[in-house]
Protein backbone atom coordinates (compact mmCIF):
# COMPACT_ATOMS: atom_id res chain seq x y z
CA UNK A 1 0.00 0.00 0.00
CA UNK A 2 2.63 2.52 1.03
CA UNK A 3 4.75 1.49 -1.94
CA UNK A 4 1.77 2.05 -4.20
CA UNK A 5 1.25 5.44 -2.63
CA UNK A 6 4.88 6.37 -3.11
CA UNK A 7 4.60 5.40 -6.77
CA UNK A 8 1.46 7.53 -7.04
CA UNK A 9 3.34 10.46 -5.57
CA UNK A 10 6.19 9.98 -8.00
CA UNK A 11 3.81 9.95 -10.97
CA UNK A 12 2.06 13.10 -9.71
CA UNK A 13 5.45 14.76 -9.35
CA UNK A 14 6.53 13.86 -12.88
CA UNK A 15 3.22 14.84 -14.49
CA UNK A 16 3.18 18.07 -12.50
CA UNK A 17 6.73 18.84 -13.53
CA UNK A 18 6.06 18.26 -17.22
CA UNK A 19 2.94 20.42 -17.10
CA UNK A 20 4.72 23.19 -15.22
CA UNK A 21 7.41 23.13 -17.90
CA UNK A 22 4.76 23.39 -20.63
CA UNK A 23 3.09 26.31 -18.84
CA UNK A 24 6.22 28.43 -18.56
CA UNK A 25 7.83 27.38 -21.83
CA UNK A 26 6.36 30.24 -23.93
CA UNK A 27 7.67 32.75 -21.39
CA UNK A 28 11.06 31.11 -21.58
CA UNK A 29 11.03 31.51 -25.38
CA UNK A 30 10.17 35.19 -25.07
CA UNK A 31 12.83 35.72 -22.46
CA UNK A 32 15.79 34.11 -24.25
CA UNK A 33 14.93 35.63 -27.59
CA UNK A 34 14.52 39.12 -26.21
CA UNK A 35 18.26 39.09 -25.57
CA UNK A 36 19.30 37.84 -29.00
CA UNK A 37 19.94 39.25 -32.43
CA UNK A 38 17.60 38.38 -35.27
CA UNK A 39 19.86 35.83 -37.09
CA UNK A 40 20.43 33.95 -33.83
CA UNK A 41 16.70 33.72 -33.23
CA UNK A 42 16.03 32.30 -36.67
CA UNK A 43 18.93 29.86 -36.41
CA UNK A 44 17.69 28.42 -33.15
CA UNK A 45 14.95 29.99 -31.02
CA UNK A 46 15.79 27.60 -28.19
CA UNK A 47 19.46 28.44 -27.80
CA UNK A 48 20.70 30.44 -24.85
CA UNK A 49 22.04 33.79 -26.11
CA UNK A 50 25.81 33.71 -26.62
CA UNK A 51 26.25 37.45 -26.68
CA UNK A 52 23.61 39.40 -24.80
CA UNK A 53 22.21 42.52 -26.46
CA UNK A 54 20.19 45.08 -24.54
CA UNK A 55 19.53 47.07 -27.68
CA UNK A 56 16.23 45.23 -28.23
CA UNK A 57 14.96 46.64 -24.96
CA UNK A 58 16.04 50.17 -25.76
CA UNK A 59 14.30 49.99 -29.11
CA UNK A 60 11.13 48.49 -27.66
CA UNK A 61 10.99 50.97 -24.80
CA UNK A 62 10.93 53.94 -27.15
CA UNK A 63 8.94 52.43 -30.00
CA UNK A 64 6.05 51.24 -27.87
CA UNK A 65 6.22 54.33 -25.67
CA UNK A 66 6.50 51.99 -22.75
CA UNK A 67 6.53 54.47 -19.89
CA UNK A 68 3.66 56.49 -21.28
CA UNK A 69 1.50 53.37 -21.67
CA UNK A 70 2.55 52.10 -18.26
CA UNK A 71 1.53 55.42 -16.68
CA UNK A 72 -1.81 55.34 -18.50
CA UNK A 73 -2.44 51.77 -17.41
CA UNK A 74 -1.61 52.60 -13.80
CA UNK A 75 -3.76 55.74 -13.70
CA UNK A 76 -6.75 54.06 -15.29
CA UNK A 77 -6.52 50.89 -13.21
CA UNK A 78 -5.93 52.61 -9.86
CA UNK A 79 -8.69 55.19 -10.30
CA UNK A 80 -11.25 52.72 -11.65
CA UNK A 81 -10.57 50.14 -8.95
CA UNK A 82 -10.68 52.71 -6.12
CA UNK A 83 -13.92 54.21 -7.33
CA UNK A 84 -15.42 50.76 -7.81
CA UNK A 85 -14.51 49.85 -4.24
CA UNK A 86 -16.05 53.05 -2.87
CA UNK A 87 -19.26 52.93 -4.90
CA UNK A 88 -19.98 49.22 -4.79
CA UNK A 89 -19.28 48.81 -1.07
CA UNK A 90 -21.68 51.65 -0.32
CA UNK A 91 -24.31 50.35 -2.70
CA UNK A 92 -24.02 46.83 -1.31
CA UNK A 93 -24.31 48.19 2.24
CA UNK A 94 -27.44 50.07 1.30
CA UNK A 95 -29.01 47.12 -0.53
CA UNK A 96 -28.31 44.60 2.20
CA UNK A 97 -29.41 46.84 5.09
CA UNK A 98 -32.54 48.29 3.49
CA UNK A 99 -35.04 45.47 3.31
CA UNK A 100 -37.48 46.93 0.81
CA UNK A 101 -38.82 45.58 -2.46
CA UNK A 102 -36.97 48.32 -4.27
CA UNK A 103 -33.58 47.17 -3.02
CA UNK A 104 -34.50 43.55 -3.74
CA UNK A 105 -35.31 44.38 -7.38
CA UNK A 106 -32.22 46.53 -7.80
CA UNK A 107 -30.11 43.64 -6.55
CA UNK A 108 -31.82 41.21 -8.93
CA UNK A 109 -31.22 43.53 -11.89
CA UNK A 110 -27.55 43.85 -10.96
CA UNK A 111 -27.15 40.07 -10.77
CA UNK A 112 -29.01 39.50 -14.04
CA UNK A 113 -26.88 42.13 -15.80
CA UNK A 114 -23.77 40.04 -15.24
CA UNK A 115 -24.83 37.67 -17.99
CA UNK A 116 -24.98 40.39 -20.66
CA UNK A 117 -21.86 40.15 -22.83
CA UNK A 118 -20.14 43.45 -23.55
CA UNK A 119 -20.41 42.70 -27.25
CA UNK A 120 -24.18 43.04 -27.01
CA UNK A 121 -23.74 46.63 -25.88
CA UNK A 122 -20.68 47.92 -27.62
CA UNK A 123 -22.26 49.17 -30.84
CA UNK A 124 -25.02 51.41 -29.37
CA UNK A 125 -22.56 52.20 -26.64
CA UNK A 126 -19.97 53.67 -28.97
CA UNK A 127 -22.59 55.58 -30.93
CA UNK A 128 -24.06 57.10 -27.79
CA UNK A 129 -20.84 58.02 -26.05
CA UNK A 130 -18.77 59.26 -29.00
CA UNK A 131 -18.91 62.84 -27.75
CA UNK A 132 -18.13 62.00 -24.16
CA UNK A 133 -15.17 59.92 -25.35
CA UNK A 134 -13.76 62.64 -27.56
CA UNK A 135 -14.02 65.12 -24.69
CA UNK A 136 -11.93 63.08 -22.26
CA UNK A 137 -11.27 59.51 -23.21
CA UNK A 138 -9.47 58.39 -20.06
CA UNK A 139 -12.20 59.86 -17.88
CA UNK A 140 -14.83 58.20 -20.06
CA UNK A 141 -13.06 54.86 -19.82
CA UNK A 142 -12.97 55.04 -16.02
CA UNK A 143 -16.65 55.96 -15.99
CA UNK A 144 -17.41 52.93 -18.21
CA UNK A 145 -15.42 50.59 -15.99
CA UNK A 146 -17.47 51.70 -12.99
CA UNK A 147 -20.67 50.99 -14.91
CA UNK A 148 -19.54 47.57 -16.10
CA UNK A 149 -17.85 46.52 -12.88
CA UNK A 150 -20.36 47.70 -10.31
CA UNK A 151 -22.64 44.65 -10.57
CA UNK A 152 -20.06 41.97 -9.74
CA UNK A 153 -18.36 44.10 -7.08
CA UNK A 154 -21.65 44.92 -5.37
CA UNK A 155 -22.60 41.27 -5.50
CA UNK A 156 -19.36 40.25 -3.77
CA UNK A 157 -19.70 42.94 -1.10
CA UNK A 158 -23.36 42.09 -0.59
CA UNK A 159 -22.54 38.48 0.29
CA UNK A 160 -19.98 39.67 2.83
CA UNK A 161 -22.02 42.44 4.46
CA UNK A 162 -24.95 40.09 5.05
CA UNK A 163 -22.70 38.27 7.53
CA UNK A 164 -21.91 41.42 9.53
CA UNK A 165 -24.48 41.65 12.36
CA UNK A 166 -26.78 44.70 12.21
CA UNK A 167 -26.23 45.21 15.95
CA UNK A 168 -22.97 46.88 15.02
CA UNK A 169 -24.78 49.52 12.96
CA UNK A 170 -27.29 50.01 15.75
CA UNK A 171 -24.60 50.45 18.36
CA UNK A 172 -22.91 53.06 16.18
CA UNK A 173 -26.15 54.91 15.62
CA UNK A 174 -26.94 54.92 19.37
CA UNK A 175 -23.51 56.40 19.96
CA UNK A 176 -24.54 59.19 17.65
CA UNK A 177 -22.59 58.29 14.51
CA UNK A 178 -24.19 59.30 11.22
CA UNK A 179 -24.76 56.69 8.48
CA UNK A 180 -21.67 57.76 6.61
CA UNK A 181 -19.42 57.78 9.65
CA UNK A 182 -20.73 54.41 10.81
CA UNK A 183 -20.10 52.93 7.39
CA UNK A 184 -16.60 54.31 6.78
CA UNK A 185 -15.29 54.10 10.34
CA UNK A 186 -16.78 50.79 11.42
CA UNK A 187 -18.25 48.66 8.64
CA UNK A 188 -15.79 49.35 5.84
CA UNK A 189 -12.68 48.43 7.87
CA UNK A 190 -14.35 45.12 8.74
CA UNK A 191 -14.60 44.27 5.05
CA UNK A 192 -10.86 44.22 4.35
CA UNK A 193 -10.80 40.63 2.99
CA UNK A 194 -13.59 41.20 0.49
CA UNK A 195 -12.14 44.58 -0.47
CA UNK A 196 -8.94 42.74 -1.35
CA UNK A 197 -10.91 40.29 -3.48
CA UNK A 198 -12.86 43.02 -5.26
CA UNK A 199 -9.70 45.05 -5.91
CA UNK A 200 -7.71 42.14 -7.30
CA UNK A 201 -10.46 40.80 -9.55
CA UNK A 202 -11.17 44.26 -10.96
CA UNK A 203 -7.50 45.22 -11.26
CA UNK A 204 -6.73 42.09 -13.30
CA UNK A 205 -9.70 42.71 -15.57
CA UNK A 206 -9.02 46.41 -16.14
CA UNK A 207 -5.25 46.09 -16.45
CA UNK A 208 -5.59 43.44 -19.15
CA UNK A 209 -8.70 44.69 -20.90
CA UNK A 210 -8.31 45.26 -24.61
CA UNK A 211 -11.61 45.64 -26.46
CA UNK A 212 -12.98 48.62 -24.55
CA UNK A 213 -9.71 50.61 -24.55
CA UNK A 214 -9.34 49.80 -28.23
CA UNK A 215 -12.68 51.46 -28.89
CA UNK A 216 -12.19 54.39 -26.55
CA UNK A 217 -8.55 55.43 -26.27
CA UNK A 218 -6.31 57.33 -28.68
CA UNK A 219 -2.58 57.05 -29.33
CA UNK A 220 -1.59 59.36 -26.51
CA UNK A 221 -3.70 57.63 -23.90
CA UNK A 222 -3.27 53.98 -24.89
CA UNK A 223 -2.75 51.38 -22.19
CA UNK A 224 -0.12 48.66 -22.12
CA UNK A 225 -2.10 45.87 -23.83
CA UNK A 226 -3.02 48.28 -26.63
CA UNK A 227 0.49 49.55 -27.24
CA UNK A 228 1.88 46.02 -27.05
CA UNK A 229 -0.57 44.85 -29.67
CA UNK A 230 0.14 47.75 -32.01
CA UNK A 231 3.88 47.51 -31.47
CA UNK A 232 3.89 43.77 -32.17
CA UNK A 233 1.82 44.31 -35.30
CA UNK A 234 4.37 46.80 -36.64
CA UNK A 235 7.60 45.18 -35.55
CA UNK A 236 6.86 41.47 -35.49
CA UNK A 237 9.52 41.05 -38.19
CA UNK A 238 12.09 42.41 -35.74
CA UNK A 239 11.77 39.35 -33.55
CA UNK A 240 14.20 40.45 -30.88
CA UNK A 241 12.52 43.80 -30.36
CA UNK A 242 9.07 42.24 -30.44
CA UNK A 243 10.11 39.77 -27.73
CA UNK A 244 11.63 42.54 -25.64
CA UNK A 245 8.35 44.45 -25.93
CA UNK A 246 6.34 41.42 -24.82
CA UNK A 247 8.64 40.86 -21.89
CA UNK A 248 8.27 44.49 -20.82
CA UNK A 249 4.50 44.18 -21.07
CA UNK A 250 4.47 41.10 -18.87
CA UNK A 251 6.88 42.21 -16.13
CA UNK A 252 4.71 44.72 -14.18
CA UNK A 253 1.84 42.34 -13.56
CA UNK A 254 4.17 39.47 -12.62
CA UNK A 255 5.90 41.67 -10.04
CA UNK A 256 2.52 42.73 -8.72
CA UNK A 257 1.45 39.11 -8.47
CA UNK A 258 4.60 37.87 -6.77
CA UNK A 259 4.30 40.66 -4.21
CA UNK A 260 0.67 39.86 -3.42
CA UNK A 261 0.52 36.17 -4.27
CA UNK A 262 -1.33 35.05 -1.15
CA UNK A 263 -3.98 37.74 -1.49
CA UNK A 264 -4.40 36.87 -5.17
CA UNK A 265 -5.15 33.22 -4.59
CA UNK A 266 -7.35 33.92 -1.56
CA UNK A 267 -9.11 36.68 -3.47
CA UNK A 268 -9.91 34.56 -6.48
CA UNK A 269 -11.13 31.64 -4.42
CA UNK A 270 -13.33 33.96 -2.37
CA UNK A 271 -14.72 35.39 -5.60
CA UNK A 272 -15.25 31.92 -7.03
CA UNK A 273 -17.45 30.43 -4.33
CA UNK A 274 -19.99 33.19 -4.64
Amino acid sequence: MSQQRRLGKKITFIVGGILAFAYVFPFFLVFVNALKLKPDILANPLSIPTSITWDNFNQALTKMNFFRSLTNSIIITVLSVSLLVVFSSMLAYYLSRTKTNLSKYIFLILVASMIVPFQALMIPFMARFAQFVSWNNRGALIFFYIGFGVALSTFLYHGFISNIPTEIDEAASIDGASDMVAFWKIIFPMMRPITATVSIINALWIWNDFLLPRLVLTNETQTLPLSTYLFYGQYSIEYGQAMAGLLLAVIPIIIFYLALQRQFIAGISAGAVK
Binding site: F27, L29, V30, Y239
Partner: peptide, 27 residues
Protein backbone atom coordinates in the same frame (compact mmCIF):
# COMPACT_ATOMS: atom_id res chain seq x y z
CA UNK B 1 3.52 24.39 -9.37
CA UNK B 2 0.43 26.40 -8.52
CA UNK B 3 2.27 29.63 -9.35
CA UNK B 4 3.46 28.23 -12.68
CA UNK B 5 -0.01 27.07 -13.66
CA UNK B 6 -1.57 30.35 -12.65
CA UNK B 7 0.83 32.80 -14.29
CA UNK B 8 -0.61 32.73 -17.85
CA UNK B 9 -3.86 33.89 -16.30
CA UNK B 10 -2.35 37.13 -15.07
CA UNK B 11 -1.49 38.26 -18.54
CA UNK B 12 -4.11 39.59 -20.87
CA UNK B 13 -5.32 37.65 -23.89
CA UNK B 14 -3.71 40.05 -26.34
CA UNK B 15 -0.21 39.68 -24.99
CA UNK B 16 -0.69 35.91 -24.71
CA UNK B 17 -2.01 35.84 -28.25
CA UNK B 18 1.03 37.55 -29.71
CA UNK B 19 3.41 35.43 -27.63
CA UNK B 20 1.84 32.33 -29.17
CA UNK B 21 1.78 33.93 -32.58
CA UNK B 22 5.55 34.06 -32.29
CA UNK B 23 5.62 30.45 -31.07
CA UNK B 24 3.49 29.11 -33.93
CA UNK B 25 4.67 31.39 -36.74
CA UNK B 26 8.36 31.63 -35.98
CA UNK B 27 9.77 29.52 -33.16
Amino acid sequence: LRTFFFVPNLIGGVVLGVIWQFVFNSA
